[in-house]
């Protein structure tokens, strides 16, 4: 075996397989970015093509209807914030009570103190892609006494839409909480998750 062949053999055996240069590292980074981008595009298309998949295709009960932020104000309703306690503390619709499936047991007591029979209920969550408002509305419907006439509304577009409708001239929303949240930072397209 010639010396050059021996050298090749040794390099084959001892060469670190982990040794890939800067250009190779960049090509890996670019490939990873391309794979992630592919996944994002497919996920987005999947969501746009099957937006109802998350709602399990179930129609809303007759007692639960959707309402626009513009019409919701005239209802004189009790507002229910179905978002997390953290989001609620940060900012919420004035007078809203926090009620989530997760902390239902102790939050429901506060709701029951605030609600009077016959008073409409408007439930909202994070926005067009959220289902918490629907889940809370359905649970409320089953939890409240059937003898009462109950009307529950789900706010279309959720809290971001409410903030948009109650935008002040300085760009701040009229929410209650530890801090005012800029509408431009918080709001996003909630019609169909920006699919249209």
């Amino acid at each position: 075996m010639s010396n050059s062949k021996k050298g090749i053999l040794l390099r084959n055996v001892n060469s670190p397989k982990t040794d890939f240069g800067l250009s190779s590292a960049w090509s890996v980074v670019l490939s990873a970015s391309a794979l992630i981008a592919l996944a994002m595009v497919c996920a987005r298309a999947d969501y746009c093509l099957r937006p109802a998949a998350l709602a399990s295709g179930k129609p809303l009960p007759a007692e639960i209807v959707q309402v626009d932020a513009a019409d919701a104000g005239a209802l004189q309703a009790l507002w229910v914030d179905a978002r997390s306690a953290q989001a609620y503390k940060k900012s919420h619709v004035p007078g809203a009570v926090n009620l989530t499936l997760r902390d239902w047991d102790f939050q429901f007591a506060a709701f029951a103190r605030a609600w009077r029979p016959g008073k409409a209920i408007v439930v909202y969550c994070d926005g067009g892609e959220c289902l918490a408002s629907r889940e809370v509305a359905e649970k409320l419907l089953s939890a409240l006494p059937r003898s009462q006439k109950i009307k529950i509304y789900i706010l279309k577009g959720g809290y971001p839409e409410w903030q948009n409708k109650h935008k002040k001239p300085d760009g701040q929303a009229d929410g209650v909480g530890g801090q005012k949240v800029g509408v431009d930072q918080q709001s996003h397209d909630t019609s169909q998750g920006g699919c249209v």
């Binding site: 794979l35 969501y47 289902l131």
Partner: peptide, 28 residues
């Protein structure tokens, strides 16, 4: 909701990438 749509597709493309005949794609 984002994760419910994104992670399955990310897993799919990562799995498919492992079968690609291009070395950087496999490593990625």
């Amino acid at each position: 909701v984002f994760g419910a749509y994104f992670f399955p597709w990310m897993e799919f493309w990562a799995g498919a990438g492992l079968l690609a005949p291009i070395i950087p794609v496999k490593r990625a």
